[in-house]
Write a protein that binds this DNA or RNA. Structure first.
Lengths: 339, 339
DNA sequence: GTGAAAGCGCTAACAT
DNA sequence: ATGTTAGCGCTTTCAC
């Protein structure tokens, strides 16, 4: 049998409430009793049961993390940062991968509730606002990471997607590119929308137009990025630069370009978004818009924990600035392509 | 207040045990009462508390997953597979990243115990056998993934590292390479040991010798892989082929080679190990020894759950075969380098 | 400073 | 077929 608080109490010759007090460092206990109890705990290798204490109303010190897929480097890096901060603050992560499937998401949401997590961090599309609303109404702390749901009053930590999209366009324009295409996700995420919007705006601000044939939607796989890139690169009026709305997609462009015998950046410049490890691993290293993953992970955790601890009653949106990381996948347009 | 089993019982006009019975589908209940209870549950949006039921001796349906780092693609992909299978079987994963730090590992191990997880999957070095032994003595189901601790009676799912190392060497030898180097981890993992041993044996079996200057130890970072590769590639008797004990290290070789103006595979052939996404993304695509990540993830979960459910009393080691995936980072040695 | 006792939400005998 | 009750391990008043 696992040792319980009773075993400790008996062996130390005190009551269980005393033991409870020394464990939680509450109330007054004489240094002597305290030491004795501590000794016995040590001796017996006693570990208080989180389950039992949770039942009496204390926290489970567990947080649910809902993301599309940890195998996606962006979310893997994010999960890692979130966990790091969680550890510092004494919280564990229950990992939930949903592949953006609403049913899976629903299932996890209610599962997390059954498991009495102290809070939930959501990094998926989460368009099942119904369940989400229920949770919010129950006052279960919830925070969004790397995405936003503008119509909800909720804690959010995300990058400034609009700014990022603008920066990407601006960079390409400043290199002299005129025919610039964009590869964008399926628009279920607000981030895609903002990036595209800003991109288009930036071009306009520079007197350029983003025609529809230069906007290609894809799902979130590299395969599809490749397919889309191939389409773009074989079109009669091939763009001289491509903005891929996330690094994974950019890799697809690399592969399509290679198959077609096109060189990056000589024949096409490409810029990505996220600055995952992939960006620094590919050849040539990818110019990309960096999300401050570290900062984002740390901040959601902080936000959520503050809400859990009740230090905070107002929701807030934290929008962090992206950063253009120039590597070698972009270069000034060559004269030949100039027109 | 969250709704409890009492609320349901009262509103349905039955006792709490009846409600409990319909929830767990145990005992006999008339179709009529059952329906009534179910309706009320639906109406109230009642969700049974896992915490409370765990306290009465039932499972928490939560499993701890201890790995070095989810941001490492190999472990990320593994974690994903484990989770997939866990979901199918009704188990959640508590994610623990330790960076192979024994203290962090210890901390997590006892935390997981406090949280009453039903079992633990360990993918780290786990050399703190003491705590681990305690858990085993307590009959907490534990399974090792992607590594082994030969001196412990424990469930293990891993790839056949020896075979993998042998295959790598064999492949290179068959391409005519004679000066072949190996980049190996810090030897804290048994997998490194086996891969190196097999590699050496394979060379010997082919009448080749693995001299000490051709064995380079590194830690687990890409940076260090690069450093090691640079050392190797600038040495007077540069090897014509390198076996990197995991893909990440191989990337380091790619980068060092690029800096030194060496081409892969023309100037050096390189083979990796793991077959993570990285292998297919780099240029040229990396020839590597594939670990059956899917299968491994699924099998540990199966093993562990069978033990949790008590269907199995004997421990077992499941050793899966690796597979040589030939891509474009290896080629027959050129005549010039022939001697 | 310490102990007794109620109760958290649920399960599992044991009754009926 | 359904209800009553005794815990599960802990926290927290409330007494002393």
């Amino acid at each position: 049998m696992k040792t319980t608080i009773y075993d400790v109490a008996k062996k130390a010759g005190v009551s269980i409430s005393t033991v409870s007090r020394v464990i939680n460092n509450t109330g007054r206990i004489s240094a002597k009793t305290k030491k004795k109890v501590l000794d016995v705990i040590e001796q017996l290798g006693y570990q208080p049961s989180v389950v039992a204490s949770a039942l009496t109303g204390k926290r489970t010190r567990t947080i649910g993390l809902i993301i599309p897929d940890v195998a996606n480097p962006f979310f893997a890096e994010l999960a890692r940062r979130v966990e790091d901060r969680g550890r510092e603050l004494g919280f564990n992560l229950l990992m939930c991968n949903t592949d953006n499937n609403p049913d899976t998401e629903d299932m996890y949401l209610s599962l997390l509730r059954q498991k009495s997590v102290d809070g939930i961090i959501i990094g998926t599309n989460a368009r099942n606002h119904r369940v989400l609303r229920e949770l919010l109404e129950e006052n279960l702390p919830v925070a969004l990471i790397a995405q936003d749901i503008p119509e909800l009053m909720i804690d959010v930590v995300a990058v400034d997607d609009y700014l990022g999209g603008y920066q990407a366009a601006q960079h390409l324009v400043s290199l002299g590119h005129k025919r610039i295409a964009i590869l964008v996700g399926n628009m279920n995420r607000t981030s895609d929308k903002y990036r595209l919007e800003a991109f288009r705006q930036a071009l306009e601000d520079n007197g350029l137009e983003l025609t529809e044939d230069l906007v290609i939607r894809t799902d979130y796989s590299r395969e599809d990025g490749k397919r889309a890139a191939r389409e773009l690169l074989t079109s009669p009026k091939r763009p001289t630069a491509i903005f891929a709305c996330f690094d994974f997609l950019a890799i697809g462009v690399y592969q399509a370009a290679k198959e077609l015998g096109l060189r990056i950046p000589d024949d096409v410049s490409v810029v990505g978004f996220d600055n995952t490890i992939l960006a620094s691993i590919v050849d040539p290293p990818l110019t990309t818009i960096a999300q401050p993953i570290d900062e984002m992970g740390r901040q959601v955790m902080d936000l959520l924990v503050r809400e859990i601890e009740g230090d905070k009653k107002t929701k807030q949106r934290v929008i962090l600035p992206p950063e253009l990381i120039i590597r070698q996948s972009t270069k000034p347009i060559s004269q030949a392509d100039g027109r």
